[in-house]
Amino acid sequence: MKKAALKDFFSKKSTRIFLLAILFAGLTVAPFVTNTLTKRIISTIFIYSLLSMGNMVIGGFTGMLNLGHAAFWGVGAYITAILMTGYNVPFSAAFLAAGIGTALVGLVVSIPCLRLSTDFLSLITIAFSYIFLAVVRNWMSVTKGPQGIPGISCINFFGVDFSSANAVYFVLFAVAVVSFIVISNITKSKFGLAMQAVRDDELGARSAGIKPAQVKILSFVIGTFFAGLAGALYAAYIGYIGPNTFTFDTSTTIFQMCILGGLGSIPGAVVGTVFFVVMPETIRTLAVYRVGVGGVIMLLLMLFRPQGIMGSRAFATKDGIQERIKNKLIARKVANVQKHV
């Protein structure tokens, strides 16, 4: 009964707004009261949440296993770095160019889905991530190869420099909040519904006049656009980029963020991001276990709560362990009752 009351409390709109307000206030005050490390971790969460929200659109809403998201992130970062260091383009323009350029790459990568099934498209995203790395590591004249590109000047919108640590923090915060609102609005619209319809049953979606390939491409374009923005922010925030950030392993981590947070939930993506950014920081001394902890979480999650922390309960299987344990308990109770009768 207590659980139900708790659930009611959290599902109330006023409660949610209240909690959001607290979170918002906390994040606003945070840079003034915390140390550099915490500030850096929160800033990283902002950047990564753009990635995980974008990947949530592709994976959690349209149901495509995108294992090349880090490469899209890299495309955005490299566009920004090359434009800013090589051509002296101001950050605001490079920021936009990164978003649009990456979305175009996403469009090209997702076009094969006109002919291929969803699982084959995952292979193409993997292929893309390897092709991207091969190009970045070897196209010395443009990407400077394995050493990467240093000396990227900091975030600067329309001539206003955000060079102090607090200023950067608030820029990242603002971009993350705006992106959250935009992505939430898209996913709550008919476009988001069409994505979910395609994810759950392509044929059923087609019978409603939805063209699955279009929906898939659209979700790729949206997801990779935000990956591109994240790339631009990352490049200007760190000031240096190299190919080793944008590997397949990073893509896997981004996907894990979405899974932990819950398929089909944009707030979930943020929650997953917080976990996967904070977890490695807390067990820094035991770096070997980091991957394993991620693995164990994936396993336990899929077995006991496949919908993730905030995903819809419709993803929970009837045949899942949780259900079976419950059924066994019920059976035992019934047997007990029968014994007494």
Binding site: L193, Q196, A197, R199, D200, D201, L203, G204, A205, S207, L263, G264, S312, A314, F315
Partner: peptide
């Protein structure tokens, strides 16, 4: 065979 969207 039903073609409904199960998670909706």
């Amino acid at each position: 065979n039903l073609k409904l969207h199960k998670a909706l």
